[in-house]
Design a protein around this nucleic acid. Sequence first.
DNA 1: TTGAAAGCGATACCAA
DNA 2: TTGGTATCGCTTTCAA
Lengths: 341, 341
Amino acid sequence: MARHAGVSPVTVSRAIRHPEMVSEELRKRIDDAVLKLNYIPNHLASALASTRTHIVGVIVPSLTNGVFDDYLGAIQDVLNPAGIQVLVLNVRYSESEEEKAIETLMGYHPEAMIVAGVDQTERSRQLLRNSGIPVVQTMDITESPIDLNIGLNHDEAGAAAVRFLHAQGHRRIAHLTARADPRARRRHAGYQRQMDAFGLSTKGLVGASPRPSDVAMGGELFAQILADVPEVSAVFTCNDDLALGTLFECQRRGIRVPEDVAIIGFNDLDFCTAAVPPLTSVSTERREMGTWAARSILELIRGGGKRPRQPTVDVGFSIKARGSTAAIETRSRAKRPRAKA
Amino acid sequence: MARHAGVSPVTVSRAIRHPEMVSEELRKRIDDAVLKLNYIPNHLASALASTRTHIVGVIVPSLTNGVFDDYLGAIQDVLNPAGIQVLVLNVRYSESEEEKAIETLMGYHPEAMIVAGVDQTERSRQLLRNSGIPVVQTMDITESPIDLNIGLNHDEAGAAAVRFLHAQGHRRIAHLTARADPRARRRHAGYQRQMDAFGLSTKGLVGASPRPSDVAMGGELFAQILADVPEVSAVFTCNDDLALGTLFECQRRGIRVPEDVAIIGFNDLDFCTAAVPPLTSVSTERREMGTWAARSILELIRGGGKRPRQPTVDVGFSIKARGSTAAIETRSRAKRPRAKA
DNA sequence: TTGAAAGCGATACCAA
DNA sequence: TTGGTATCGCTTTCAA
């Protein structure tokens, strides 16, 4: 490349990274050669020499549901324009895959890391801390973050869902939960805590599956609950897929929503508003978490290190009340049609 | 690291890459140092020196829907165990983002590339071809692949959906399509071609939106069709999200599915079987495409170059007939209840 | 404004 | 089995 343009390698490097430092003539000569040769600088060599890799590592537990799409998009929207590449590794809700992924990413010497959740293994935490680079834990909050932390209190969110239903007059409140990732587990704990606080029994009202969730599972889990506790009047699901599956199961059996059974999901994915009736859901600020994580990192990388005043940010959550839930007073509980399974 | 274990850098390298070439004693000494120092080899330096980057670049047009999740999973399941890292870039259905993504990935000197679709820009094709590495185009098929190609004929799939509905007695067949990515456009073309071949008019029966699709859009587009052609008897949507939205819109209006309106989607995502009624959909072999792409690459990288007998593989598609479609004879078309919008 | 020299952290090749 | 040496392609530093 350098010889093709008749200049030294140093000048090529400068013409590309700092065009203003090169005379117009040489710059032009180099630009031409770049085009002619389809020259793309070797990122590995560049990163090795400069110790600036322009890489930020991001670990997500899943890509299946719409949950991490907004989040990743937000991160990219901040980082890419700043010339930073985001390396995304999907660890499929596995701690050991996460450990491996962190090791792998460290081999690329990222300038910062963004990880989902606060439940990394001890080794993962150690690797992240030892790296000396900024680390952001998202989606959840903790007393003892590795470095920066933005998320929400899932225990509190689970409890809030129960309070919401309780305020509408519900007492037999079920909870459905799939593959128990730590955050779903906390939502479950919040549900249990609040039910206990209300003095309500959860016997036969909790449906759990070890498999990754999908819409069909929502129906299956709810069917079990119905078999155990036919009087169930409301369902809180650990995510929207299960809520949709529950809604379908109700349609299948001729159970009216919200008159006979109320449903509240979690995440507020786009299909919630489209469903019939629209699904009430606990909405979380996924884009905001991604944006904040990326911006914080950018400041730290550029600004040379002034950390945010507080390491942990709680972005909270909000309940989007829609047609799948309603105050129990308006319900005619008397006749509940019960179709065949 | 080397000095900490009291050996030369070369030996460290060997102890890690080819442990059998190093004496037990030194290996142990090095292993200890690795653990103590949390040593992770610098991938950039290693790749630069060995010209083996162990990277395969993958470009996907979206992560929003469940479509690319299986596919990516399949690719990783083949490549990761072989010690290859998959770098995934999401280009959000943008040709220019795709060009940039390819340039970026080339800077990492991947050993192969997997791209979705066959509609890359001229520059993208040029970059891929010039790279000299194996390239697999997936999801669609073409007469003139860059290198290897596995996919299905989307035009034919669109036509097949129409034939399926036609065979059931439908004549007023609508088509809904969102953000027109090239494959959706081909499905649309196939729909049009087949409708023409049947001598059926599509006037007022095509609903299109430039925005990325979501469930709600399905309802909106179908509502428009209903306004224009109230006699519409079947709907073929370019993806399952729109199909679900259409189903919800029918529920909202008291239109019976499949008695009054039949619905067929595309992709056969998991929620299709859970819906009420279950959604008929055109099923595609996403995992198989990912697996084939990854395996082919592995052979080429390892085996030193014996290309598959044929560069292009057509994995086809299949129509999963479910409750949202039914032969029109069984329908009581007379009374179609029509609720308020 | 340009270039020469040194080096980033590993690996390939050859010698001991 | 082990290590010295050159090198991968680029950037940094310093001198011209």
